[in-house]
Simulated scan of single mutants.
Amino acid sequence: MSEKISIMDIDTVSLDDENSQIVIIDQTLLPYETKTIRLTSQKQIWEAIYKLQVRGAPAIGVCAGFGLYLAAKEIAAGTQDYDEFYEAFVKAKDYLDSSRPTAVNLSWALNQLDRVVCANKGKSVPEVLEALHKEAMRIQEEDIRACYKLGEYGLSLLKKGDGLLTHCNAGKLAATRYGMATAPMYLGQEKGYNFHVYCDETRPVLQGARLTAKELMDSGIDTTVICDNMSSSLMKEGKVQAVFVGCDRVAANGDTANKIGTSGVAIIAKHYGVPMYIMAPTSTIDMNTATGADIKIEQRAAEEVTEMWYEKRMAPEGVKVYNPSFDVTDNSLITAIVTEYGIARPPFTESLKKIMEIKAEAMKQE
């Protein structure tokens, strides 16, 4: 049974441990309905990620962490043997990991839990389970903290009254709270910055029009939706002082994979001298991926382009459809990559390495 809620009053993803359920805002229903749904089975969790009921790299990572923990609870109910437990655990991990290939947070979160199981090999299965619960909750807490810090660093780049452009949804709906690209907008709203935010509609799934515009309006921010092909006109008129977008994976050289259309926005921004900021919690930085050319790009169903939002089909039957979910923005188009541990600037091969070193040192001290 679903519950009506307000977007701004509840976390995008949360764990109901007592009932062994993940509670998510079903983003496929927005903006028409704001409802939560409860996920119990691994199939439901897999489908929720694949079908974009929960989406956005950080939110996917949090959901995957909770999902694998719930799988471990189910496995532990049937065996107290570590080897049997771990064999089934790995199968559940691989299953969830297959839901979406591009967002690094998915595999990152699952691997975090896998490391916990391996690190507790000598302990009982109930003790391993408790460690997994602690890690899954830590991933969510880290997401909340990281997004708030992103907001503080991002806000330091802006002035009161700035016009901002964002693409897709890197808002609170893409994380637990605050969001990535929207975090400085929310903090600015609290401090009276009076930003005007322009949201690309983001074809073909319309995350900008359906999701970002909805949550920004709900928070009282001055918001305007534009079609994806209108950003050049807007920038030419001087209405945009900065572009803020999220990302699903950052390569070691600073190339970034984000929702399809982001690279086009970056090219236009470069032409008009508008700074292009990538808001990236360090969980999305993949130092093992050398360049954007090494990032696997997810191909989505043709129906998203031809039928999804139309009363009648809007393209000829049988026509070929090219529908990549993401594109890669070349590092040469990026002004800075904003993380929770500081702002990385070109050359990114050096600055991102430094950011990850700062993070490693901070984690040692925690």
Rank of each mutant, 00 (worst) to 15 (best):
K93Q: 14
T176I: 09
P101C: 09
V23L: 09
D11N: 08
W309F: 15
Y198I: 05
D218R: 05
E142Y: 02
V319L: 13
Y322Q: 13
L173A: 10
E74Q: 14
A362Y: 09
R177S: 04
R55H: 04
Y69W: 03
Y153L: 04
K123C: 11
V125T: 07
I75L: 07
I260D: 01
A146G: 07
K91V: 14
C118F: 14
S351T: 08
D162E: 12
S156H: 13
V205L: 13
K359Y: 13
V54Y: 03
M287H: 03
S351H: 05
V62Q: 01
A213P: 10
M180E: 10
E201V: 02
V250K: 10
F195Y: 10
Q299W: 12
K123I: 01
G78H: 15
D11V: 00
M279E: 04
T289P: 05
Y178C: 04
V245T: 13
L30Y: 00
T349H: 09
K134V: 11
E130F: 06
I5Y: 10
A344Q: 07
A88E: 15
A183W: 03
V319R: 08
K134D: 12
C227A: 15
P184V: 04
V328H: 00
D94P: 02
D83E: 15
E350H: 11
T202H: 11
I75H: 11
V321Q: 07
Q27A: 02
G342Y: 10
V240D: 11
V245M: 04
P275H: 12
V117M: 03
L157A: 10
L352Y: 08
V104G: 02
A257H: 04
E135I: 01
I22S: 04
T262N: 01
G208W: 03
G122V: 09
I334S: 07
K320Y: 12
P184A: 07
I226N: 08
D327F: 00
H133K: 15
Y153H: 15
Q140K: 14
D327T: 03
G171Q: 09
I260F: 15
V319T: 12
T102R: 09
S351L: 04
L68I: 01
E340F: 07
P204V: 06
G238Y: 13
L165V: 09
C247D: 01
N253K: 14
K123V: 07
K121V: 13
A131H: 05
G179V: 02
R55V: 03
A302E: 12
K353W: 08
Y153Q: 05
A315L: 08
L216Q: 02
G208L: 06
D162H: 13
D97F: 01
E84W: 14
A315D: 07
T40M: 12
L216T: 02
Y50C: 07
G254C: 09
A266R: 04
V117Y: 05
E135L: 04
A136F: 00
S98G: 10
R249Q: 03
M1V: 14
A251D: 12
H196L: 07
I37F: 10
Y310Q: 13
G161W: 09
Y341N: 10
A336E: 06
A48Q: 07
A362H: 14
N258G: 01
P316D: 15
S41F: 11
A170T: 04
I297W: 05
Y198E: 08
P275L: 07
K364N: 07
V54P: 02
G273D: 03
T212S: 13
Y82R: 10
L110T: 03
